[in-house]
């Protein structure tokens, strides 16, 4: 059995890594984060290259690729900590693609694929979305809950920006002020794919912070030896690798299952999101420990990764919620 990416997938990954490294150098990310904004040209370029509609059908303006390719992009977006409204737009696209009516799909998906009329999706309680990414710049907002969802034009919602610890992404509270349209079917298949995409982003964040830690542990010397030579540091780095690889393997399994074995997707996606959310917390907080005092200063970039990992871990279900789902799907009961 061949677990490698195909040549095309490798080319997509390499292109994404090169482009994002060029566009999101640490000083650029810091400038955008401190200003609390995105640079419109960044998302426009990604959309121009076809990224925004990577998983959408070609007749909807997409690229006709799948969840594995989406996961490849998401991992690299996490690795580069790109401040772009990609995840939110992809989430809306996934929900409308899998649960929207024909009319909803034809109305909104071309704009999502081209990036001209972005969307977003978020979980709602009592009809209100408490934390919806990029709602303030979206054209269409999908609020999800209780096995269904409602599609709103952004102009039919009250949108109040919400500050979170993760300043690399913009969030808002969304209160519908007008009528929306119900989705045509259960959005669960879309939620599984969104969880998988988030797990991929968390994997990228973990990979980057692990690399930063290993590099620091090689260079930084204490008592005339690199700190990586001390077991207290090297064991942490080894644990980071174990967590990164576990998160990546499970995420790619879920991404593969989305098209190849859809009946396995709910379990795989829940496992991936649970593992990656835990890894996001464990790896980035270990990275802070390896970096010592400099790691938690504002001037060091590490805290930006740490904070996005923390918020990503909570978006679309926490690790605990996804573990409970794994238990339920495995026949072990809803809450252990």
């Amino acid at each position: 059995m061949n677990f490698d990416f195909t040549d095309d997938q490798q080319a997509i990954k390499r292109t994404a890594k090169d482009l994002l490294a060029q566009r999101f150098k640490p000083d650029v990310v810091r400038e955008l984060v401190e200003a609390g904004r995105y640079e419109d040209s960044h998302f426009a370029e990604l959309a121009e290259l076809g990224w925004a509609g990577i998983f959408l059908d070609e007749d909807q303006g997409g690229q006709g690729l799948g969840t594995v390719e989406l996961a490849i992009l998401m991992e690299e977006l996490g690795y580069s900590l790109a401040p772009v409204p990609f995840l939110s737009n992809a989430a809306a696209g996934l929900v409308l693609q899998h649960a929207g009516s024909d009319e909803q799909r034809s109305r909104w998906l071309p704009g999502i694929a081209s990036g001209q009329a972005r969307g977003t999706a978020g979980l709602a309680r009592d009809g209100e979305g408490a934390l919806v990414a990029d709602a303030d710049s979206a054209a269409v907002i999908v609020l999800l809950g209780d096995g269904g969802g409602t599609v709103y034009e952004a102009s039919a919602c009250e949108i109040d920006p919400v500050e979170t610890i993760d300043a690399t992404r913009r969030y808002a509270r969304v209160r519908p002020a007008g009528d929306g349209e119900a989705l045509a079917s259960d959005p669960a298949p879309a939620l599984d794919r969104i969880a998988t995409a988030l797990a991929a982003e968390l994997t990228g964040i973990c990979q980057r912070t692990m690399e930063m830690s290993v590099s620091y542990a090689r260079d930084r010397k204490q008592f005339d030896r690199p700190i990586g030579a001390y077991q207290a540091v090297s064991h942490r780095c080894a644990d980071m690798l174990r967590e990164v690889e576990s998160a990546r393997s499970t995420t790619l399994w879920a991404a593969w299952a989305a098209e190849a074995e859809p009946e396995t997707l709910p379990l795989a996606a829940a496992m991936a999101k649970a593992l990656a959310s835990d890894a996001g917390w464990n790896v980035t907080s270990s990275a802070l420990q390896v970096h010592g005092g400099v790691g938690f200063t504002w001037e060091h970039d590490l805290h930006f990764f740490f904070k996005r990992a923390k918020v990503d871990g909570a978006l679309f279900g926490s690790a605990r919620e996804h573990r409970e789902r794994v238990a339920e799907l495995s026949g072990l009961g809803a809450a252990l």
Binding site: D7, A11, T15, L49, L65, E69
Partner: peptide
């Protein structure tokens, strides 16, 4: 320039 997804997939 960077290749678009369509260009990557069409290269073969």
């Amino acid at each position: 320039r960077y290749p678009s997804l369509k260009a990557i997939m069409g290269a073969k």
